[in-house]
Design a protein around this nucleic acid. Structure first.
Lengths: 221, 221
DNA sequence: CAGATCATGTAATGCGTTACATGATTTC
DNA sequence: GAAATCATGTAACGCATTACATGATCTG
């Protein structure tokens, strides 16, 4: 039941359902997302349960806005969630699952293409996170100067960045290993497979072409 | 609809629902989990749809086992999922959300305790992953010698490890920063808060005590 | 003989997505 | 006048968890 708590957290500054939808889209994406169709009924329920109050306000354009704010009871609920210790979720990571079964395709080129596509999407994501990080840094200088609320938000973002960066490094490590395995197989006397498949060239791009891996395991730990 | 595909992937070697439950528990936890109460009906549906076949087998102990195996149609479905590109899921990470709102508690000690508790749980998880990694390495040597299927599984695990390690480094970075901020605040003329709360000592432990942060940002990128 | 493990399931409930419905205002 | 944005919602469906139900066999 985390969406409840996340809405309570966001509603420490009053907002409408629509506003919250934009918040998820723009600034909370890196740790949570909810559709408007889930937000509206949840807000209603939280109000019914005394966690929120609402008033309607005329909108500058479009229909009237229903603006929610946190009640004392809601604030207490939020605090007790925050004090309940780190909430772990069960891991369900489809892209790792895909990789786990990828031997089924029996083609290193396809695995390589997969990793490369994954890498591109991560790079894009990292760029968005970085822009967000810069915005904070531009308005306040370094983390040392941030007010309490911004500091916590900044730390949360830093974790998002750290994870994406780790995945990016993993992509590079893994691509290198796949290329090295293909290279070994083709040099070996086990006979290269028949048909017009020529090594790991199809999905390859960037970074030195067949450079044998220098052992970086130590640095990864 | 990923559980479907994950079951198909696992059922390339025939197994019962119960077996699959143990697999999630023991060797697939780092990327997926499902309850038996979800597994059983899903298997039934997949069989109905022609993705699986089953036969019953007497069990050594307990009731008869229903053992499922992949059909050609099921294998095709699995392959097309694998070829459909990396499947991203919307991020929903409650512990980052908690941190995001943690300023609500207004107490650096509580944030520090949170980060420390998070760190301990990650360390435990990393240990399990490492044991798993060692098992693979012991049976086959380095990744260079692994057969295709084990190599892919190993790479998947490596990503899990990389992410946990990144989170651990983040914990240390963040704890250091919180301590530094508390130190600054107490040395500053803004007056230390009244009452018997003495800095960030409560949750602190390990690593040099008040060592000012040496800038490691560059290395993190 | 009590408790763990093997083995299969159903039912109720909750969380989340997709599709649908409505209508005003602004911009091109 | 068409499309985008503001703004609110409902309904149907699917995915996941928790609780419940049953019974055999092995271990201490």
């Amino acid at each position: 039941m985390s969406l409840d708590h996340i809405l309570l957290g966001l509603l420490r500054t009053p907002a409408s359902g629509y506003d919250l939808g934009r918040t998820f889209d723009e600034s909370a994406r890196f740790f949570w997302f909810a559709e408007l169709s889930q937000i509206y009924p949840t807000l209603k329920r939280l109000e019914r349960d005394g966690m929120l109050t609402s008033r309607t306000e005329p909108s500058v354009r479009g229909p009237a806005r229903r603006v929610y704010s946190l009640t004392d009871e809601g604030r207490e609920e939020l605090r007790s969630w925050l004090r309940s210790g780190p909430a772990f979720h069960t891991l369900r990571i489809p892209h790792i699952a895909q990789l786990f079964f990828m031997d089924e395709l029996g083609d290193p080129d396809e695995t390589l293409a997969f990793v490369e596509s994954f890498r591109r999407q991560l790079a894009e994501r990292l760029e968005r996170y970085r822009e967000f990080e810069e915005e904070v840094e531009e308005s306040h200088g370094t983390w040392r100067e941030l007010p309490e609320d911004e500091f916590h938000r900044y730390c949360a973002l830093r974790q998002g960045i750290a994870v994406v960066e780790a995945r990016l490094r993993w992509c590079e490590e893994t691509a290198r290993r796949i290329r090295e395995r293909v290279g070994d197989a083709e040099r070996s006397p086990a006979a290269p497979p028949p048909g017009g498949h020529e090594g790991a060239s199809r999905a390859a791009e960037g970074s030195a072409t067949t450079e044998p891996e220098r052992e970086t395991e130590g640095e990864m730990a």
